[in-house]
Amino acid sequence: MYEFDFSFLNDYMPDLIHGIWLTIGMTVASILPGFVLGTAVAVARLRGRPWVKRIATVYVEAIRNTPLIIQVFWLFFGLAALQVHIGPFAAAVIALVINVGAYTAEIMRAGFQSIPRGQLEAADCLALSPFQSLIQIEVPQAVERVYPALVSQFVLMMLATSIMSQISAEELTGVAYMIQSFTFRGFEVYLVIAVFYLGLASALRFVLMGLAEVSFPRRRRLRTPL
């Protein structure tokens, strides 16, 4: 009979907490820049000059059709080869922003395209500049329409941080691997880690849905679900 042994929880608690913080840190640091980059790329794909559109398309397709870990290695070792030295945390965040930006761009593109043309014409006729129209009219509505998809994408990104120990950013999965190699209690360790990820993902969803309550006053007032 297999005997469970969770004593590592006690012995390695500081390492686990450090790992959790690193996972949270990478996620939080990547969400806003990733969203801004993705939105900008979506606008570039929809409104840019032909060469801008082409660059945006190449970026989106290149990122969405290659593994994240290859992108991370390429950035981390590539920059090192160019004598640009950044820490593993910074490299991880940059890679995540570039990665999630491409997916966000596609989600936001759908959001922008769902806005009736008449509204943009009305904004034009009220003498709003294209940028004012984008910020005041288009982005708020696009975000509102694709919000659940954005939340899923950011949760996926949080889970994807689990590969970052490969460039020695010792996040939660990296810590788990380290504990497992000392204790040989892989079954228990990865069970606990999975529960931690489940908790983190639920918390992230909860926070992002709470943000929606604050950000979309119309939904709050009229009680329309997202």
């Binding site: 009736p116 008449g118 509204q119 014409e121 009305a122 904004a123 006729c125 005041q136 009219i137 708020p140 509505q141 509102e144 979309f216 119309r218």
Partner: peptide, 13 residues
């Protein structure tokens, strides 16, 4: 010059 359209085109949000 103001303009009003058949489809109102108010900003719903």
């Amino acid at each position: 010059v103001g303009i009003v359209f058949q489809s109102y085109n108010l900003f719903p949000h």
